[in-house]
Write a protein that binds this DNA or RNA. Structure first.
Lengths: 192, 192
DNA sequence: CTTGTTTATGCAACGAGTTGCATAGAAGGA
DNA sequence: TCCTTCTATGCAACTCGTTGCATAAACAAG
């Protein structure tokens, strides 16, 4: 598993509390690794007891106190070790593809609205990525000579952008296919 | 959850045993939904006791007997219901992206071999998809007038092909970035 | 002044997914 | 003959992930 490692990377990029991490997992790092706050708090506890991270109680005014975590030497070593291990899985869980194949046994045109919804969501996400890219990497306020960390964050973001563009093209293809099927009578089903 | 639904779709496309399903989840449907045989057997049991699928004991010679499952009316209804529900999650778990961002705190060039390995794996997978596309959809043995099910399987496969092509392009981008970082001295790390 | 939202942390229970192991007959190679 | 591989099914134990709920302080809106 690698939630620990995703947290280590995020904490190395910037120390923070469990709550702040859970916010990050709804944005930036969350675009390629999802986690809920309960998961994060539980793993933080374990990482702390394993000496991977240090805690610092931060009293705050106008809001509850927080525990700010930062990566300890042992955590850095664990990350380094993981980075040198090969990974294979890349486990995929693409509900929509299952639904599309399943639509053959139901009414394909009923999926059109669903696919359109996904299209809109990916359009929004692409716009969001592109805005982030302009802000951090290609716009006037971006660093002229980005350091290694920034270049690596940028290449990951470019991957997200490429993924969204590819997905939008594919969803167009899916929509065209569903509409074509809806226009012609269904073959052997209990459709109206 | 949707392992049940992926199994329903697979069994509608062709009835089969738990073992055969687990083979399919290593190929075709497994490219967008992974499952191990233990998971499959467990879920088949539940689906059977819920009346979603029917079993038929098939005696075989030269190999152990098998239980062939097929979708019952209640299973078809469950699939239909699921198809009409909206889905949101699309949970992503992209280890490599985490590793790339993590490489900023280690030696980026150590990741090159790993990324090259992924590049080879995706090249193989693309070749495999393209061979399947020729065999089933675009080659001389493909049906001249594909039915709805075939058209939907094809559009899903086109999605897989587009994904692999996009990924290969991105991995080239990642490799170029990692090599560039390796060629220039690292900024502020304990690298040699 | 109550209600709702944001920050902040956590428990308990359940369901999903993984890993290791076990069985068993038949085929094929060393 | 033994060893491995393939088909075929399954249990047990564990970890991971999700859902529902709870607490608590501060602020803003009604």
């Amino acid at each position: 598993m690698a939630l620990e490692h995703a947290i280590l990377v995020s904490l190395l990029e910037r120390p923070g509390s469990g709550y702040e991490l859970s916010r990050r997992f709804e944005r930036s790092i969350g675009y390629f690794w999802t986690a809920t706050h309960q998961q994060i708090y539980r793993v933080l506890k374990r990482m702390e007891s394993d000496g991977w991270i240090d805690v610092r109680e931060v009293p705050q005014q106008a809001r509850p106190d927080k525990k700010e975590y930062s990566v300890a030497a042992r955590g850095r070593a664990a990350l380094s070790e993981w980075l040198h291990e090969p990974i294979e899985p890349e486990s995929v869980r693409h509900d929509l593809a299952v639904k599309i194949r399943g639509a053959a046994f139901d009414d394909p045109s009923a999926l059109i609205r669903e696919v359109e919804r996904h299209h809109r969501a990916h359009t929004d996400r692409l716009a969001h990525y592109l805005a982030g890219e302009r802000r951090d990497f290609t716009g006037p306020d971006a660093p002229a000579t980005p350091d290694a960390g920034q270049q690596l964050q940028h290449v990951v973001l470019r991957g997200g952008i490429a993924y969204e563009r590819m997905t939008l093209d594919w969803l167009d293809d899916v929509l065209a296919t569903l509409r074509r099927l809806g226009a012609t009578p269904p073959s052997a089903d209990s459709a109206p």
